[in-house]
Amino acid sequence: MIELNNVTKYYTTKLGKKYVLRDVTFTIPEGRDVAILGRNGAGKSTLLRLLGGIDFPSKGTITSNKRISWPLALASGFQGSMTGRENVEFVCRVYGNRQIAKTSAFVKEFSEIGDYFELPIKTYSSGMKSRIAFALSMAFDFELYLIDEITSVGDASFRKKCIESMAEKRKTANVIMVAHDMNTLRAQCNMSIVLDNRELTLYDDVNQGIESYQAKLSK
C-alpha cells in the first residue's frame, strides 16, 4: 500500500513556483497494477520519482510498506565521475545487497555495454545510461516496480529482453506504469491515475481512467 497525504510538489523557477501537484491525498491499495495518465508536462515522471524516493514532496508525506524500485531506466542518479561498476557497487551498498560481485557481473552482461562498464558514466551515451540503469533495476527484487516508458530503452532486441525480464519480475511484484500506448496500459494495469491541472484522480478500473484521459484530450 502507498499513501500520499496532502502532497504538494513545486519547483522554483525565475518566474516563481511551478506547481506539479497541489494538496494531493490518495491511497494505492495492495496488489494493484496502476497506469499513470496525463498530458505531456502533467507531472507523470515527477510522480514516479516521488513514489520511488528519488525526489521529495515540497509539502506533505508519502508512506509505504513496500520495497519500491526507482523508476526503471532512470539514469540521472548516477555519479558521472564513477565507472559503471563503481556506480553499481555503490547502489548495492545503499540497498544492503552483499552480493556485489554477482550483481555487477549481471548488470554488465544484461546491459551489453562491454568494456564501457569500466569507464566513467559521463563518457556514456544516454542510451548506454538507460541500459545500465534498467539492468541494475532487474538485479534487485522489489515488490513494486516503477516503469516510465519501458519501450524507449535501447534497440528492438534489447527492448524485447527488457519486456521479458520485467514479465518474469511481475510474477511476484506489481507495477506503476507510464506509457503512451493505451493497449499496453490496458494489458498491464487494472487501475489508473489521471493527472490534470496539478490534481490527481484515481480510477478503480483502468478503462475508466483511459476514457477520462482521452476525453480531456479532446477538449
Results as ranks from 00 to 15, higher is better:
residue 28 I to H: 01
residue 55 D to G: 04
residue 10 Y to G: 03
residue 134 F to E: 01
residue 141 D to I: 10
residue 105 A to P: 05
residue 218 S to W: 10
residue 91 V to L: 14
residue 156 A to F: 14
residue 92 C to V: 15
residue 65 N to S: 13
residue 155 D to K: 08
residue 52 G to C: 02
residue 44 K to T: 08
residue 218 S to P: 01
residue 89 E to N: 10
residue 132 I to E: 05
residue 12 T to K: 12
residue 123 T to M: 02
residue 55 D to I: 01
residue 124 Y to I: 02
residue 152 S to P: 03
residue 82 M to V: 05
residue 33 D to V: 00
residue 24 V to Y: 02
residue 214 Q to V: 11
residue 98 R to G: 08
residue 91 V to W: 11
residue 31 G to H: 10
residue 169 K to N: 14
residue 210 I to N: 05
residue 140 F to S: 04
residue 13 T to E: 09
residue 115 D to E: 11
residue 197 N to P: 11
residue 167 A to D: 05
residue 164 E to N: 14
residue 117 F to W: 02
residue 181 D to A: 15
residue 196 D to T: 10
residue 79 Q to S: 07
residue 151 T to E: 05
residue 137 S to N: 10
residue 167 A to R: 08
residue 72 L to I: 11
residue 106 F to S: 09
residue 57 P to I: 05
residue 189 C to V: 02
residue 36 I to N: 02
residue 85 R to Q: 12
residue 195 L to E: 01
residue 49 R to G: 01
residue 84 G to P: 00
residue 106 F to Q: 07
residue 186 R to C: 04
residue 133 A to T: 05
residue 65 N to E: 13
residue 164 E to Q: 11
residue 211 E to C: 15
residue 159 R to F: 09
residue 71 P to C: 11
residue 1 M to T: 15
residue 215 A to V: 07
residue 137 S to C: 15
residue 76 S to C: 08
residue 188 Q to G: 00
residue 72 L to D: 07
residue 122 K to V: 06
residue 157 S to G: 14
residue 183 N to W: 11
residue 22 R to I: 08
residue 190 N to S: 06
residue 13 T to D: 13
residue 9 K to C: 03
residue 167 A to K: 07
residue 88 V to W: 03
residue 5 N to K: 15
residue 122 K to N: 07
residue 74 L to A: 04
residue 148 D to I: 02
residue 18 K to L: 14
